[in-house]
Amino acid sequence: MTAKPDWLRVKAPQRERVGAVQSILRDLSLNTVCEEASCPNIGECFKAGTATFLIMGPACTRACPYCDIDFEKHPQPLDPTEPTRLAEAVRRLGLRHVVITSVNRDDLPEGGATQFACCIAQVRALMPETTIEVLIPDFCGSEDALSIVIAAGPEVINHNTETVPRLYRRVRPQGDYQRTLRLLERVRRSAPHLYTKSGIMVGLGESEAEVLETMADLRAVHCDILTIGQYLQPTPKHLKVESFVPPETFERWRLAGEQMGFLQVVSSPLTRSSYHAEQVQALMRSHPRTPKIGTL
């Protein structure tokens, strides 16, 4: 693998705090995307007492060549106790904002949407002041599955675009660019009080013009929040890094995104979908939205 430039080097995590978070996760038998996807920010986030919970896993039914999460054709049945255990972890960690994501579960009729809804309900019951963000799969385009998640009432629905349209077949072979845009558009249309979010990886061979075009597509479906980060090759068997994008380019994209009308753009080499996700609370205060009767 190509050597990383200096701007991608991170400090060693504080072992005591990381160990404390890991102890809670192990005690409650929970997975995090921080660990399963080899996130470079795990030390910073665990030190701050935050984690992005990975439900319905750890094995995924899709084998995306950029992702470090294990592929499994025959994943385990859903655990009905998982939502309760997740809510307890939120309580023990004292989280003010929680991110819940999942592996793809294309083997399930509704893609696991009901498990998302159960997790949201349990967190609401135990930690009513905690804001909830869900990073969801595309549910193979199922509107019914998406409606289940919307009805559960998270504050933020995130679905990652991942890359530019030209690279979809290579980077996200079981995904569909237009399906991603339709999902975000459906959330905005059916629940305009919710905040929508998406993320892009760069360094996979895209041009700067293609990144800007993808950003414009996301704004066209009224996406509120955008994250842009550098792709890092997890192992030699994964897609290679085509380029390391310098910090000044990420800053240009951040400014361009703000000019396009995104409410928040988090753009840096180490940015990931859930990096500093708790900042959405400030966004909600500055851009409040009131649920309309009948939307939930």
Rank of each mutant, 00 (worst) to 15 (best):
H74L: 01
I132A: 05
R272K: 01
L135F: 04
K237A: 07
V211P: 05
F244V: 06
L212H: 14
V33L: 12
A37Q: 05
V149G: 04
M127A: 13
E278N: 06
E36H: 02
Q279W: 09
P154A: 08
Q233W: 07
S198D: 09
H238M: 01
H238N: 07
A117D: 01
Q281F: 00
L226A: 09
D68N: 15
P128T: 07
E210P: 15
V245P: 13
V21K: 10
I225S: 01
F139C: 04
G205M: 01
A121G: 09
P109D: 07
D68A: 15
S268Q: 08
A12G: 05
S147F: 00
P40K: 03
D144L: 15
C140W: 12
R124S: 06
G57L: 04
H159F: 02
M1V: 13
I55M: 07
F116R: 05
C140T: 14
L239R: 04
E155K: 12
L263Q: 12
F71K: 11
K240G: 10
L270A: 08
E278A: 06
P236G: 01
C67M: 06
A87C: 04
T101L: 03
T161L: 15
S102V: 00
Q281L: 11
G112K: 00
M284P: 11
D107G: 11
R285Y: 08
E210N: 14
R289H: 00
T290H: 12
G43E: 12
A87H: 05
D138A: 13
E88A: 09
Q178G: 06
S198E: 06
A3F: 08
A151M: 07
L30Q: 15
G203F: 10
C140G: 14
I132C: 06
V187R: 10
T235A: 07
Q174D: 13
V123K: 00
S142W: 08
N104P: 00
V280P: 10
Q76K: 09
A216K: 15
L270M: 08
P40C: 03
Y195A: 03
T290I: 12
V90K: 10
T130C: 14
E278Q: 12
K240M: 03
T81D: 03
T196E: 04
R172G: 03
P137G: 01
T32A: 06
L283H: 05
V90D: 10
A151I: 01
V134E: 05
V187Y: 11
G175N: 02
A152H: 02
H159Y: 00
I200Q: 14
E82T: 10
I200L: 15
L95C: 06
P137E: 00
D70C: 09
A220G: 13
R285P: 00
Q76M: 10
G111P: 02
E143S: 15
L212A: 14
V123C: 02
K197G: 08
G94S: 10
Y66M: 05
S267G: 14
S286F: 11
F46W: 12
T131V: 12
T2K: 15
P269K: 04
D27W: 08
V171E: 00
E129L: 02
T114L: 05
D27M: 08
P154N: 10
C119T: 04
H222I: 08
D6M: 01
M127H: 10
R124A: 08
A48V: 05
P40A: 00
I200C: 11
V266Q: 03
K11H: 13
G294K: 04
P58F: 03
E162G: 06
H97F: 09
C67P: 15
R272V: 03
V211R: 11
L135C: 14
